[in-house]
């Protein structure tokens, strides 16, 4: 039985995964240019300042685009197909990759409102995922 890949955080990305464990979506914010960034970087991708701090993001966003996987490219996902991979535009202005849960793949619509939920993938790791906003 193959398992899904489990992220191994490094010293730079640890706050993201520490936050997820506490069910908080943490993003880097630059105090020099007020820009948010994702994924994890050592310096701000907008202004290259090193003044990045971790802040809790709203967890709200909209579905920008997605695809639905039918072919098993990774044996860990053999029991998951068909599953979606989505890109979500967060309110903070960054776009992240995740899965939309709590909804059938056929009901996915670009532009739909989403908010973050957290799913356990191992004893130590939780991953942020997204679900449709009720109503």
């Amino acid at each position: 039985m193959h398992t899904k890949p489990v992220p191994v955080p490094d010293e730079v990305s640890a706050p993201f995964f520490d936050g997820a464990r506490d069910r908080k979506l943490m993003l880097q914010h630059c105090s020099a240019c007020d820009g948010w960034s994702f994924p994890v970087r050592e310096r701000c991708p907008h202004c290259f300042a090193a003044a990045l701090t971790w802040r809790q993001a709203s967890g709200r966003g909209t579905l920008y685009t997605f695809t639905i996987m039918h072919q098993v490219m990774n044996p860990g996902f053999a029991s998951a197909v068909p599953y979606n991979v989505a890109q979500i535009d967060l309110e903070e202005g960054v776009r992240m990759v995740s899965n939309v849960v709590g909804i059938g793949n056929d009901a996915l619509r670009i532009g739909m409102a989403l908010d973050v939920v957290f799913e356990d993938v191992s004893d130590d790791i939780r991953l942020p995922k997204f679900r449709p906003v009720a109503g």
Partner: peptide, 11 residues
């Protein structure tokens, strides 16, 4: 690890 953190884990 690295940048794969944000794609491979999601398939």
């Amino acid at each position: 690890g690295g940048d794969m953190l944000h794609n491979r884990a999601y398939g």
